[in-house]
Design a binder for these strands. Sequence first.
DNA 1: TCTCTAATTAGATAGCTGTCAACATAGAGA
DNA 2: TCTCTATGTTGACAGCTATCTAATTAGAGA
Lengths: 119, 119
Amino acid sequence: MPKELPLVATDACCAPLTRDPLTADQAVELSRLFKAMADPVRLRLLSLIASHAGGEACVCDLTDAFDLTAPTISHHLKVLRESGLITGERRGTWVYYRVHPEVLARLSAVLIADAGVPA
Amino acid sequence: MPKELPLVATDACCAPLTRDPLTADQAVELSRLFKAMADPVRLRLLSLIASHAGGEACVCDLTDAFDLTAPTISHHLKVLRESGLITGERRGTWVYYRVHPEVLARLSAVLIADAGVPA
DNA sequence: TCTCTAATTAGATAGCTGTCAACATAGAGA
DNA sequence: TCTCTATGTTGACAGCTATCTAATTAGAGA
């Protein structure tokens, strides 16, 4: 099992995009995550995994949903893995993937409209 | 002023990614928005515009923040415009951009963790 | 009208990316 | 060990994209 990179940086964390201008580094960091989601196949994979019973899905569950070869699915899963959005774990013959909800939550927080700073 | 496309589709709206698998169409629709944000320059442009005083920024305000030529900035603004994330308006010599907060809010809602369906 | 500046468009190019076929690896079980 | 199946990796290729220079359009003002 290839290892995923620990890209869940804490630096560019949760301040809304709309409050203060992003630094160049924060923008690079965030763009890596958005790049990982900037493909319809990867979005569907993410959604299939996240919404699957038990919060995880075997690759075999995923492949059938697409008109793509197994290597292509594998490639997309690798992109999602390396971005830190999902993790894969081998159990016997099959590999199971699950999402990292914190990463999705962080992105959601970044996009949310700023309510303004109280006081 | 080139017109922006009305890509703010209402179809793939606000159900969290994590609740039900996205349809292929929804995924294509969403991926267009994520693609527009999958670049550090565009993320910073978005952030600069959104956080600028008055909620809008002149192109002249934006160009200085980057080591890029004006045509390159213009290209990125066009991508953001065509994705529906921002709009531009010419007033006299200058062109002012502002973000569409609903689109950001929609993306934020899609990424948020599903709290589950009550009842 | 002429000229200056702001912004965009056009065309070119290097680098990235999604896809496939072919091959490799990892367990399970005979 | 041998074989079968599930995944992943490699290498290749077409299409997309970020960037630049050069040319163009739009408005302001002399």
